[in-house]
Design a protein around this nucleic acid. Structure first.
Lengths: 194, 194
DNA sequence: CACATCTTGAACTGATCAGTTCAGAATAGA
DNA sequence: TCTATTCTGAACTGATCAGTTCAAGATGTG
């Protein structure tokens, strides 16, 4: 069982991310991480760093992975802004519908715990939410909204996207989640018609 | 220091509620509660029960207190539905703006932690969110929306209300929070115009 | 075979946690 | 004054936590 790397770093990081995602930072112990990754306590410590460092890596992995998907969804915003925003929300809805993945959202969960988290972790979470808003704003401006409209709808859409995390954890049905984003998409259609 | 009750139960419960609200269940220790309430460890145990019981009481106190305010805000829905929903969100926005109170929302925070909470606590949180939706739905129907529209807008508004908890924790400005609810209020105006 | 590399399990430290108990101090009312 | 009630501080249990260390075992490479 030695001589060469026995585990895939990315797989382990993935498992750790999902563990943090489901239970949150406070309720995830090193033993939980050890169980989730299949790695020994010592191995985690020596190759992934301590709990804080590992959590930061997981946050970044999460932001990068889904950030790409959100970007891809919004890429058609210039020609079809409504479809783009719908696709944006679909990224989240599909993630929630995936039985392999936890409900909720790692960023939202982390944001809610900001008062008890380290400043660096808090900063990463805030930054991730900021990126989301900027992504949406750029797309909406490309889609033809004014600066003001784009700003307002971007922060609204980012918030609604986070709300899906709360509502899914509280047991909302897929139909209800769809209704939540439906109102927002309709509001965008309306804004574009003006 | 004895012979008669030395502390006001409601005051103590209030302090405990705020402590849970700010730091969440997992990150609140009995020592934190002792400090917050000014009560001895033993006194908490003997007069407020164990951590789980106390948390349930705090959840109920929170739901009752703000439930009343939400109801009052929505009471004019039949004649002025848009103003009613705006007043509904104002309850949350004023709570967030109050420097005496934590950001966020106890219900939202609890909902996010459902996977690691006891079933009874999870049930209380879900119930509270369910009430919020029913409150909104009744108001919107009274305001003249169809059943379908009222259902969709109610779950949307309840979600947006929860999103304010996430966004305020992530450092969103009052103007941004206002923009978030603005889009929803506009969507309601539009629905009523049809 | 020998060595460098990797992995493991176990242990230990110092800290915190919830829950519980209890003796004693303080006090209000009879 | 006597007594029932209330409060307090301290202690203890059994558990978990993060962080760290290390010796022993396993394996691939040269």
């Amino acid at each position: 069982m030695a001589g060469k790397k026995q585990f895939d770093m990315d797989t382990a990081l993935d498992a750790a991310m999902i563990q943090f995602w489901r239970d949150g930072y406070a309720d995830t112990s090193l033993d939980d991480l050890s169980r989730a990754t299949g790695l020994n306590r010592s191995s985690i410590y020596s190759s992934l760093g301590d709990k804080d460092t590992l959590f930061l890596r997981c946050l970044d992995l999460y932001a990068a992975r889904y950030g790409e998907k959100y970007d891809a969804a919004l890429s058609c915003a210039a020609s079809e802004p409504v479809a783009a925003v719908r696709a944006f929300f679909d990224v989240t809805l599909e993630r929630i519908a995936d039985p392999e993945l936890p409900d909720g959202c790692l960023i939202a969960q982390t944001a809610m715990a900001i008062p008890v988290l380290s400043p660096s972790v808090a900063a990463h979470a805030k930054q991730a939410l900021g990126f989301q808003r900027l992504r949406l704003r750029a797309a909406l401006k490309a889609g033809g909204l004014t600066d003001q409209e784009a700003e307002a709808l971007a922060v609204h859409a980012a918030a609604v996207n986070q709300s899906l995390a709360v509502m899914s954890r509280a047991g909302a049905s897929p139909a209800q989640l769809l209704a939540i984003v439906g109102v927002t998409v309709d509001a965008l259609s309306q804004a574009l018609r003006a």
